[in-house]
């Protein structure tokens, strides 16, 4: 009697196993499906709008007609500015964390700052940038205000990725350098940084991706001007902001789809580059470590 009962249990648990594995696989398929639908839908609707004139002409009637050229300029300039500020700070922080200090109160404080900053919502960055850069420092709605706000937002990403990249450099390389009489800074610049570079670039690319896609932090700091800027103190409108205004205020769905397609394509490109760099990097380190 007992024997049959046991076999029932085993059969039941086997069937349950098959069901659960099916459910888990289904969820993964669902997640990938959502991605395919999102990217596919945007490109399907948006690609027909993408013509050279759409990319290279200024908008007319608040974006109802014409192209998106000034918003492309705005996006590029703001992103470049954000990276120029955040990359040195982020890499320096990562060097300090990975190469100089490993524990203690200073490190705990820096980590707390970085982790907390990573969790701050972009609208808070927007409000802060508005209060601090736009009003308090009197920079107005400008490239400068927007880029500095974005820099703060992408800083934690760059720190984390750069630190991981440096920690992935084998300890033995450092020991060889030290054992030949290399100082700490020589070891960092000649052995650690060259080998961590692809990983660091990956972090920077992720930061670029976030900057390109950001809206809330930018709209209150860089403004929404549709003119091509001439100085760092001019306001700009990024593609994301333009797209948000077009779609939310129902100005032009056609141009909204076009802008969305450009956005999605740039994010795809940025992610692809980041992913490629990371993989080449890991493969190289693995090959070296044998």
């Amino acid at each position: 009697m007992k024997g049959t009962w046991r076999r029932d249990v085993i059969l039941l648990s086997r069937r349950r196993d098959r069901i659960m594995v099916g459910v888990l696989t289904g969820s993964a398929v669902l997640a990938v499906g959502v991605l395919v639908i999102i990217v596919g839908y945007v490109l399907w609707q948006g690609l027909p709008v993408l013509t050279p004139t759409f990319l290279l002409e200024a908008p007319e009637k608040m974006g109802r007609a014409g192209g998106i050229f000034p918003t492309i300029v705005g996006t590029v300039v703001l992103t470049a500015g954000a990276v120029l500020v955040a990359a040195p700070l982020g890499v320096a922080t990562a060097i300090y964390l990975a190469e100089y200090a490993h524990q203690g109160r200073t490190v705990a404080l820096i980590r707390f700052g970085t982790e907390s900053l990573a969790g701050i919502p972009s609208i808070i960055f927007g409000v802060f940038g508005f209060l601090f850069f736009v009003i308090y420092l009197d920079m107005g709605w400008s490239i400068l205000s927007g880029a500095l706000t974005l820099a703060g937002m992408i800083l934690p990403t760059i720190i984390r990725t750069a630190e991981e990249a440096m920690l992935a450099v084998p300890r033995e390389y450092r020991e060889v350098s030290y054992s030949l009489g290399g100082s700490r800074w020589q070891t960092i610049t000649r052995v650690v940084l060259p080998n961590a570079l692809p990983g660091i670039l990956t972090g920077i690319m992720l930061g670029v991706g976030r900057s390109v896609g950001e809206t809330a932090a930018v709209i209150f700091t860089a403004g929404a001007s549709l003119r091509v800027p001439h100085s760092l103190f001019d306001p700009v409108r990024t593609m994301s902001v333009h797209f948000y205004l077009l779609a939310r205020e129902g100005i032009s769905m056609r141009n909204a789809y076009g802008t969305a397609a450009v956005l999605v394509l740039s994010v795809l490109a940025v992610n692809f580059v980041a992913y490629y760099l990371m993989h080449r990097h890991l493969a190289r380190l693995r090959g070296a470590g044998r």
């Binding site: 033995e172 020991e175 060889v176 054992s179 080998n195 190289r284």
Partner: peptide, 9 residues
């Protein structure tokens, strides 16, 4: 000279 050869990359 270390136990395992460690060529720098």
């Amino acid at each position: 000279v270390f136990a395992l050869p460690i060529p720098l990359p």
